[in-house]
Design a protein around this nucleic acid. Sequence first.
DNA 1: CATAAATATCGTAATATTACAATATTAAAA
DNA 2: TTTTAATATTGTAATATTACGATATTTATG
Lengths: 108, 108
Amino acid sequence: MGTTKSEVFSEKVNDLASLFKAMGHPARIAIVQFLRAQEKCICTDLVNELPLAQPTISQHLKELKNAGIIQGSVSGTSICYCLNLDKLGELDVFLASLKYDQVPTCCS
Amino acid sequence: MGTTKSEVFSEKVNDLASLFKAMGHPARIAIVQFLRAQEKCICTDLVNELPLAQPTISQHLKELKNAGIIQGSVSGTSICYCLNLDKLGELDVFLASLKYDQVPTCCS
DNA sequence: CATAAATATCGTAATATTACAATATTAAAA
DNA sequence: TTTTAATATTGTAATATTACGATATTTATG
């Protein structure tokens, strides 16, 4: 008990859930928004921008990177992060798949 | 420690994170997909469809309902659930706001 | 009213997440 | 090569999430 029963769901469903989950924290939304505004940034920029400790920022960056939402490239002693909009595009595709051609009248 | 520091983020960022979080579980993705396919359903339909116990389904439905992603209307002894695509549209708007007119060349 | 059907709630065990201090790692700069 | 800057990792306390058995609630039906 306590663990998500991932094994009973399809890979596609699990992947989508992981992607949504990665976006399901205000710090990570803020990071993504900051990255969008700055085009790119390093960890220190975020540490200065957000009222969270450096290890916490680093942890959130790692989760976003594992989810494929951001990518980082080494640049001297720092790491330059930027958005991978292709990955977020998968959410677009999913959300579009939920839309109806004709909106049903139930529950309205 | 242990708690998300919501108070340091804007209401908008917190709301978006909550919405993503609500979609961040495979059971809830599956419920949303089933609802899309059936247009509407009751809890028992989902209990028959998904290999999860009834209280677990009920708990997930509650989270989706709290997030505004689904809505339920009483119908006899059962409750008829359906999607609220307007709420999911908020995610569309956010994802669209991340897109660039001109894709930057960083990190590529 | 007793029963049944559908759903919600409670209680709880197992696990996951969040945040951060302390520390390690890595690469440039002095 | 020591120092500095940037970032990652480790360890851990506090809290949240997940799943489900047991039980309560609610509404129709006999």
